[in-house]
Design a binder for these strands. Sequence first.
DNA 1: TCCGAGTCAATAGA
DNA 2: TCTATTGACTCGGA
Length: 411
Amino acid sequence: MGLKGGGGGGVGGGGGSGSDESVNGLAGDPLASQSSGLKPLSEDPSGGESQPGTPLPLPGHSGLSIQEMVAMSPELDTYAITKKVKEVLTDNNLGQRLFGETILGLTQGSVSDLLARPKPWHKLSLKGREPFVRMQLWLQDPHSVEKLMDMKRLEKKAYMKRRLSSLSDSHSVDGVLPGPDYMQGSQSPVGQQQLKKPRVVLGPEEKEALKKAYQQKPYPSPKTIEELASQLNLKTSTVINWFHNYRSRIRRELFIEEIQAAGGMGPGSEGGSPSLRGSKSGEGDSCDGTESEGTVETRQGLGVGLEDHRGACKDQGMEVESEAGGSNDSPAELDCSASGLAGPGSSCVQSGLGIFGLTEASSTSSASSTNVPARNPRDNNLRKKKAANLNNIIHRLEKAASKEDPSEWEF
DNA sequence: TCCGAGTCAATAGA
DNA sequence: TCTATTGACTCGGA
């Protein structure tokens, strides 16, 4: 189902913040079914009869829009929630695509990302919290799994039907029935498909060069970008996008580092964090700026351009402080956030025990924070490596912090 | 104008 | 077939 009317991605324009209620296909939307929004889901107004394409009762039908529900939501333990969701999906053999499209109104890739690398609640914008509220409500829905299973069956049925008819239809050409697309209503005209820009895939050398450039200057000047682009034979927009994405993803990795360092709770606390799990690219593509041993050294050796380092310093510094185990300069929230339990200005609000009543997830979380599961050796190694790098950064940050003038900061 | 946040969707890999 | 990765994009804020 074309969630966003087809735009997006590398071709037609990304998702943007269009996460309005355009997720009309969210059959069995927990937000809809939990119309009160204030009580655990113990009933199922939709009667568990959700079907693909069934129009949703609008979240507002209870007087609460999704945004309002998000705004009213207490602190949620995003890690516990994603962990639980993953469990449920795995146990019931339900795919991320189905779950994302029907429950969250997101695409598979986004779901994968969210589940693997959930940000702490307090670091999320209102919009970013929305999927977690949806997940939370879904988890509370006693019929959630059944509904999704039903959807799965129906989709399969529809697929078989179409396949059969396409086979019997001499006009249909082989391959016109791509996998999930048939369900997504992606009926882009042929002409439109021809307009699609091919996806740029950066080669290892290009990535390496960009990473080196990033290590020197996380915020390169337009001139640098131009130079990089011409040297690598890329479009400047590609280089700009790469830096945007890389910064953003490094930041996210650091959130996870923060969580893991603080309590062992987190997406990968059992069996290894997805973010730490050997990235298949094996070239630091986990977007962890602290991952490669060279990172810090390179910065030191080459000297980061100070003209534009604010973001990197701010972001990494902050995370690193908490990584250090709650440095005394860090706001209390960092300690709390590490277990996903708190937010800015709040003092470790209990997670999910408020109006949404996430009891199980919360208990999981608190249990994990006091009982860190053993990691496998590989993770330990990775972790040690990262910890060493982070310590290095911490050290320099501490030095830097003693100098008020940023221009005196040394990296 | 730049940046971060959030997302899409193509693609690679298991 | 499913999941993970990642380049590109939109939107809103500074």
